[in-house]
Structure formats: C-alpha cells, structure tokens
Design a protein around this nucleic acid. Sequence first.
DNA 1: CGTTTTGATGTGACGCTGTCATATGAATCA
DNA 2: TGATTCATATGACAGCGTCACATCAAAACG
Lengths: 205, 205
Amino acid sequence: MTLSNRIGAVVTRTEAAAATRAALVRAAAELLDEGGPDAVTLRAVGARAGVSRGAPYGHFADKARLLTELAIGAWSSLADTVERLRGEPDATPSARLEKALSALVEVGRRQPHLYALMFSTPADDAESAAAAGRLEDLFLAIVADLVGEPDARRYGALLMSSAHGIAGMEVSGHLAKEKWGVDGDRLVRMLVDTIRTGVEKAARD
Amino acid sequence: MTLSNRIGAVVTRTEAAAATRAALVRAAAELLDEGGPDAVTLRAVGARAGVSRGAPYGHFADKARLLTELAIGAWSSLADTVERLRGEPDATPSARLEKALSALVEVGRRQPHLYALMFSTPADDAESAAAAGRLEDLFLAIVADLVGEPDARRYGALLMSSAHGIAGMEVSGHLAKEKWGVDGDRLVRMLVDTIRTGVEKAARD
DNA sequence: CGTTTTGATGTGACGCTGTCATATGAATCA
DNA sequence: TGATTCATATGACAGCGTCACATCAAAACG
C-alpha cells in the first residue's frame, strides 16, 4: 500500500514515480555541469538517481527528450530571473536591460554546457519553444521601455543576439582578455550604452 | 615502385598517403554538412574516403583531432574571404565591415554544423587558435579603419561577438522572422549603422 | 639486384553507448 | 481476495571509438 523511496519517506506509488523522474532530471543536470555532454549517459544518470539504466525510458521517450527537458528548465529559470526585474520599477530601463542581458551571459559563464544545450535543442519542440518564447517576451517588454514600441522588436532581436554572442564567445574561450582587452560584462555595458545613445539621438532629430 | 590511387593516377607512396589524408578530411566535411555531427563516424568517413575504419588513425591521433582540422579549415577559409575585402579600397570602412560580419553569418547559414564546430573545438589547440586568431586580426584591422585605433579592440570584440550571436540565433532557429520581424542580414546592417553613428557622434563632441 | 626496413592500411577484439523486448513485482482497484 | 496496471530491472543487440596486431608493398640500402 505504501512505498518508501530513497530517502525513506513514505509516499504513494505515483508520488514515488514523480520523485524518480525529478531525480533523473537532477542527476542529468549535475552530470552535465560536472563533466559536459559526454558525461551524460543514461547509465550514469540512472546510477546517480539510484535506478537502473532502463528506468529513464519509463519517463522520457529517449535521451534527447531528457536533454530537452534540461533545456526547458534552463529557459524557464532564466525567464523567472528576468521576470523578477519587473519588480524593480525604480531602476532605469537601461539598467533593467543591462541586468537582463547579463543574466543570459551569466548562465553561459556558470553553466556553459547547459547554455550550449539551450541553443542546440531542436527548435521544433513545442514546449521548448514556449519556454524560450516566454523569456523573449519578457525581454521584449524591457526593450520596449527603452526604445519605444515600434522599434522594440528589431532592437530586441539585435540585443538578444548580441548578448547571446557575447556569452558564446566567452563559453568557447574566444573572448580572451589579452586579445580584446575587455570581458563579457564590459561588452554588455557597451552594447546597452550604444543602443541608448543611439535612441536618444534619434529622439532629438 | 609506383602505386595507383583511387582515381587511377600513378603516384608515389607519400603522395598517396597525403591524398588519403585529404580524402578523409573531405569525407568528414561532407558527412558533417549532410547529416550533422552524429553522421560523422570514423567508419562512415573511412568508407566515403575508400579506406577502412582504422585508416584515419594513421593520419589523426583520434576523432577529435580530425574534427579540429575541419574547424581549422573553416577558420582559414573565412579568414581568406575577409582578407580579400582588403583588396577593395574603394569601399567605405563601414561597407567592408558589414561584408566581413556578413561573411561570418553566411558560414552559419550555409554550413550550420561546421559553424557550430568552429566554436566548440577546444580553444587550447594551438593550430586552431592560430587560425581563429588570423581572422580576428584581419577583422580588427577593418574595425580600426572605422572607429580608430584606440577603440578598435573593444569595438572589435563587441562587433565580432554580436555577429557571432546573430549567426548563432539563426543557426539554432531562435531568430524567427514572425517573432522579431527581422533577419540576420538586417541585424548586421543595424549593428554596423549603430556603431558608425555612435562613433560619428563621439567625434563631434 | 636481392634484402631489409618502414609505414600505411586492413582486421579482430574490447568496452561503452542508446535502445528495445521481456520479466518481475508491488501498488492499485474490482 | 484476485486481477490489473505500471514503474522498474535485466538480457540482448547493433553501432561506436579505440587499440593491438597482421599484412603487404614502397622505399632504402648493401
């Protein structure tokens, strides 16, 4: 009637299955962070979650789907971070924008393998696209506060792409400070300043 | 004394080995373009090059080294393209800059898997870093023509990162036109214009 | 010229991987 | 209680990268 899971708590059957599923996702995330994509094998994921190598197939169609869920979690978490910026109405639009862009770069810096996964997961997956879309919409709203509505989409695309590139250059080690004399944070500030002054200039004309 | 290779030409032994090596690289590049990274197996590479699965080990330490050579070739080829822009002195600095950035984006568009490989190859490889460094230096010279020497490095980093991000967003399918209303080419033009007007403004002050 | 050396290539074998078919066994339900 | 359902465990399979070893012809040498 009851069942004790790996930490000894008494739970129902479906609760135990949900806990196993969560443990599998967590194990995969940890393995990805610690050893990169090659370290994420279903056998290793199962072992860390305390189940067998075949158990993941009871929760995910295949390995790719498990990885997609990692990416979805990363997009959602980042969206939560950006959404929290809306609760700081005292900050200027450009300050909020800089924080949002920095949050993206920070994911790349802290979890480079997860960051790469976010942009390599198949874009045709509906759930993944929705999670990424939520971040993009939140981001778009912040950009609109700075540049105004008619131009928000194109500037949003430019800003998001540029921040993604800054993160990518950092992740791949192509942003060596001795070569360019700057780091990613500095580039984000330059980016926001450049757009801001450009918009102010356009407003004067 | 002599040896006929796979296309029937009579060649010496070392020539044949060099041809095999080139055939392996070409086969790997084709398989990458056609089927993505998963399609690049040493068995498939060997088969397409007309040799056995073990033959690559006579020319490359391991599979990773073969892939690194693909990346090196991509960096070199892109550097050649950018170098050719120097032969157009009639073009304005901003026009040359736009062409250079577009060349990067175009690689991502035409050969997305190869593009991903360029930025995922280990940055600690000396030969690969040198090939990427040549492109960066050529690019830096073009940027210096536009923004002047003291600021060339930081603006170069920003421009290269942004272009990389535009390419990355396109490759991963995150630059949907219905969402942002623009494509990568448009973003490259916006990027160059923004920097150019920013520099002109700074010059007036 | 005959002999030896060298080096590219072919092949068998190993452990590892993702995946499927099947068995097990306990929670759930009639 | 008996039947069912469903998460999990396990055996098996093909494909993978890689290594050890065998082969065999070109090259070097006396």
